[in-house]
Design a protein around this nucleic acid. Sequence first.
DNA 1: CCTTGACCTTACCACGATGGGAAGGTCTAT
DNA 2: ATAGACCTTCCCATCGTGGTAAGGTCAAGG
Lengths: 136, 136
Amino acid sequence: MNIGEASNATGVSAKMIRYYESIGLIRAPLRTGSNYRVYGEDEVHVLRFVKRARTLGFSVEETATLLGLWQDKTRASGEVKDVATSHIAALETKIAELQGMVKTLKHLAHCCGGDNRPDCPILDDLAGEHPISKGH
Amino acid sequence: MNIGEASNATGVSAKMIRYYESIGLIRAPLRTGSNYRVYGEDEVHVLRFVKRARTLGFSVEETATLLGLWQDKTRASGEVKDVATSHIAALETKIAELQGMVKTLKHLAHCCGGDNRPDCPILDDLAGEHPISKGH
DNA sequence: CCTTGACCTTACCACGATGGGAAGGTCTAT
DNA sequence: ATAGACCTTCCCATCGTGGTAAGGTCAAGG
């Protein structure tokens, strides 16, 4: 299987497959005589694992950890759960952050006429001129 | 006011102040004879505006737009509201994405013993081996 | 007057993850 | 044989931020 086929089979772009190889996330595959990378089922399996982990928002580094745990047949599932749990916490922090922004913005947008007059509470807030208290 | 004082007064690092200047987000300030940047109240005001917009998650480019609208005394507040509204939509999309990740991960973590045995539904899911259907 | 330390200047390099493109080699089908 | 679809490596860009090095400046105190 060439890199293009491996890419199609996994949804990981050829570019990223080479990148993952270059940073050591995945192992360098065998090459043909003409220097083409050759992938087999195992490699595709690994790539799908990586793809899934990335889709779930794990960083490449966390993915490397998970990959290591996956390939370590003797690991304790608790280790994996720890990685997952702290990732969940990070995601939730991020979500709370974004929700805070949305809340403030919605309040501002709600107070903004959105008409043709130049008065705009959103800009006033950004400018710190007439700060609107959050508690309505 | 030197750049350090402006930084303290606004919470924008000196590094970022120079960066914002270099990309044209803010105007180049006057300089002293010894080439130090000099900031006044107006510049500080602009920097605080930028800081607040960035804190609310606007990209530098969106911030530039808002800054332009702020300084255009004749703008319609509707234009500002549009920028804010589409930013809210982008934030909400992102939030939904993260929440999807959290949901899946929580489910996986819930199914994972987290003990010393090597069986781990999280890894099995990542590997696509025994995919756990989302609907429990 | 000189030193010290805190500040300023510019100019680079790095991150993380990804895409783009150039310049060149290879394979397959017509 | 040639075209077109692949592959290879190498470099550059993004976005926002931090670091660091090499040098200039300024204020305070000996």
